[in-house]
């Protein structure tokens, strides 16, 4: 079990066999880089790209390899917005909080997702089905408020649309939900 605690509560428990996967992935990435602190950010970015997030054991392993305290790695991972300590859900919901989106109801959309999913932004539902994040401007200000569902940009997201988005995942037969439903099946 990881010993590092994150901002909101502790890590979600690791899945079966995940620890082995983490160890392997991190070792692979570490081989590509010289063990210098200068490479810490590129290493973390690449590990996150492979695993989807930065689990505690990964950060500890990287710290040991670079011969720096684990807290330095954790400090970096929490300093920069790009790094996430929670595993991504099967479906990733990113609510844009750029100026334009904020002014026309981005917060309302975020609150709707929080209410429906029972999690706060930055968290993942216990079954790792959905993860909810706020992101800085995604550059689609003309379609505000914007939510990025998996890779798909949804514009003008009203509370009813929030329900619609979540509903489309419940019924895989519904149009448009198929591709999203198939994606990342092996994540659980």
């Amino acid at each position: 079990m990881p010993s590092i605690h994150v901002k909101r509560g502790v890590f979600l428990p690791l899945l079966e066999g995940e620890e082995e996967l983490i160890r392997k992935s991190v070792s692979g990435v570490l081989q590509e880089y010289e063990a210098a602190q200068e490479n810490l950010i590129p290493i973390l970015l690449q590990v996150q790209e492979m695993l989807g997030y930065l689990p505690g054991p990964a950060m500890e392993q990287i710290a040991a390899a670079l011969k720096i305290p684990a807290v330095d790695v954790y400090g970096l991972a929490t300093f920069y917005n790009q790094f996430r300590l929670h595993p991504p859900g099967k479906h990733q919901l990113k609510v844009c909080m750029g100026t334009a989106c904020y002014m026309v109801g981005g917060r309302i959309a975020l609150e709707c997702f929080e209410r429906r999913l029972g999690i706060k932004e930055g968290e993942t539902t216990p079954g790792r089905e959905f993860s909810l994040e706020r992101v800085a401007c995604v550059g689609c200000c003309t379609m505000a408020p914007v939510v990025v569902v998996d890779e798909q940009v949804e514009g003008k997201v009203t509370p009813t649309r929030v329900d619609g988005i979540l509903l489309s995942f419940e019924k895989p037969a519904a149009p448009g939900a198929e591709a999203a439903g198939q994606k990342g099946e092996d994540a659980s």
Partner: peptide
Amino acid sequence: GSGFNCELEIFQGSGA
């Protein structure tokens, strides 16, 4: 073909 050498690389910032 001049005597000037220069290498450019990308460093990805991580959002701060």
